[in-house]
Amino acid sequence: MSKKPMIASVWLGGCAGCHMSLLDIDERIVALMELADIGAMPITDFKLGGFPMADVGLVEGAVCNTDNIKFLEEIRAKSKFLVSLGDCAGWGCVPFMRNFFPLNQVLEHGYIWSSSTVDGFIPDDKELPRYLDKVQPIREFVKVDFHIPGCPPSADTIFHVVHELVSGRVPNGIPQPLLHFD
């Protein structure tokens, strides 16, 4: 029996909505499991370094900090085909909105000036990543093989693309009824 293709995903600076939309394929997850192995996802126990070699890698979220870059580079290095899932990964979407303000103002607002904060300061422990001056889409860092637009893309759209890929076909765009940008 030949080995099943492996699917893996990561979540960078996004709201989890794209992964939730992936879960909204509901019972079809069982069909997908017949066709492919689900290696690493926010719903499985993957750890850095233990990330599997994948045939299809999905990335949700924009790149906001140095940890995001680390995860993104790992999934790129280990995936044959990399998909940007949703608008945050694709062009920045809502996380991008902080680019209109200097990073220090955004941080100061969150940790010093916000109405409920008492004796605030900006967290700076060595365990924390460095926040980038500008949020960027993932293609600024790695090669992306396919993009699924939407905030989030619908479950049907995600299922269509992933199903094509694990069946060994590269989708030729997204069929009109499944294509939406909201």
Partner: peptide, 14 residues
């Protein structure tokens, strides 16, 4: 033992 949350998006400002 510490639990670190590391992400930040900045909604309140933007």
């Amino acid at each position: 033992a510490r639990f670190h949350v590391v992400e930040f998006r900045g909604f309140e400002k933007f």
